[in-house]
């Protein structure tokens, strides 16, 4: 393992090399930076700026008027911001746990069965991810529909569970399941490929030692896929913070008083989805701004916690 510049360039030319490297880096990073600047940074800046205006359908998007922090005050004047914040954390934590644990479980199990069968199960688990969200959500809303309909009712009735309208009586269960079954495939994909990339010799050695499958998993597989697991944890946390689509398509934040409304759904409802078309762009932007700050804060904490510094370490080469 050695640093690039030590191999690539003699030390005496380091000063000029430094510039050359920066120029080359710019060449390679230019397109990505331009896209990021225009479609990530600029919108975030605009969102923050917009959150101090009163833009709404009733003003149009062109007549920017400063109203100071009024949108933020209005947000915290609502009786429900705490509920929504709490929902957000519950949603992220529970769905994340489901995604990672189930994803890991499916990955481990599917590599422990015959290759063909494993592949089949993985394909099945990828189905929710590759289905259009409206169709996938429709399947769940019909599965959870009110009696005498709803497949769930048909399944649980023999076990003495009273038929009910699941989306309304157990909204969190549905929210977690619908998101969990989509999200688990992400972890499964990453974990499976990571497991498959583990050199065979390691397993052979264990085989010779007569280790059990569980032992192999605990001693060899899991430690070796530590980074993918952390990557999935961090990446999925961020995804979940920003996601709302399946909640929107099933419980739509209800029933009643924001029972399953998350922060991003709140922002979406406010800025983009009002039954009577009264969209509050600036107010929604203030919510989005808070969401950006929350997402950033939590990612930074997680990156620190998991020592992601190592992942962004200086370039090096595996030999």
């Amino acid at each position: 393992m050695a640093r690039i510049e030590e191999i690539a360039l003699p030390r005496e030319r380091q000063a000029t090399a430094w510039w050359r490297f920066n120029a080359t880096a710019l060449l390679f990073l230019g397109p990505a930076m331009a896209l990021v600047l225009v479609f990530f940074i600029a919108p975030v800046v605009i969102t923050f700026v917009m959150s101090f205006t009163d833009l709404a359908t009733s003003t149009g998007l062109s007549n920017w008027q400063w109203i100071g922090p009024e949108n933020y005050q209005r947000m915290f004047r609502s009786q429900f911001w705490l509920t929504i914040l709490g929902n957000t954390f519950v949603y992220v934590a529970v769905v994340l746990a489901f995604n990672v644990i189930v994803g890991l479980g499916i990955a481990l199990l599917s590599v422990h069965v015959e290759a063909k069968a494993g592949g089949l199960f993985r394909s099945l688990w990828l189905l929710p991810r590759i289905s259009p969200s409206v169709v996938y959500a429709l399947m769940w809303t019909w599965a959870a529909a009110s009696p005498p309909f709803g497949m769930i009712n048909y399944v649980v009735e023999p076990f003495g569970v009273e038929p009910r309208y699941w989306i309304q009586s157990d909204p969190w269960l549905i929210v977690i399941l619908i998101n969990g079954f989509v999200g688990a495939s992400f972890g499964m994909l990453i974990f499976t490929s990571a497991i498959k990339a583990i050199p065979e010799d390691l397993f052979r050695a264990a085989q010779v030692d007569g280790a059990s499958a569980l032992h192999v998993i605990r001693r060899i597989t899991l430690p070796l896929i530590k980074w993918p697991i952390l990557f999935v944890l961090v990446y999925q946390t961020m995804s979940l913070f920003a996601s709302y689509e399946y909640i929107y398509l099933t419980t739509n934040g209800g029933p009643g008083l924001y029972a399953t409304e998350t922060w991003s759904l709140w922002a979406f409802h406010t800025a983009l989805s009002n039954y009577y078309g009264n969209l509050d762009f600036a107010y929604g932007a203030a919510m989005a701004a808070i969401l950006v700050l929350m997402g950033l804060g939590i990612s930074v904490v997680m990156l620190r916690l998991f020592r992601f510094g190592q992942l962004v370490a200086e370039p090096r080469v595996e030999v």
Binding site: A56, T57, S58, G254, P255, G256, L257, Y258, H269, N274, Y275, Y276, G277, N278, L279, D280
Partner: peptide, 17 residues
């Protein structure tokens, strides 16, 4: 222009009731 906001609150409370 703000009927949609008024409506949203009243409807959610209807659900809650």
């Amino acid at each position: 222009a703000k009927f949609g906001i008024y409506d949203d609150v009243l409807y959610r409370f209807l659900g809650a009731v």
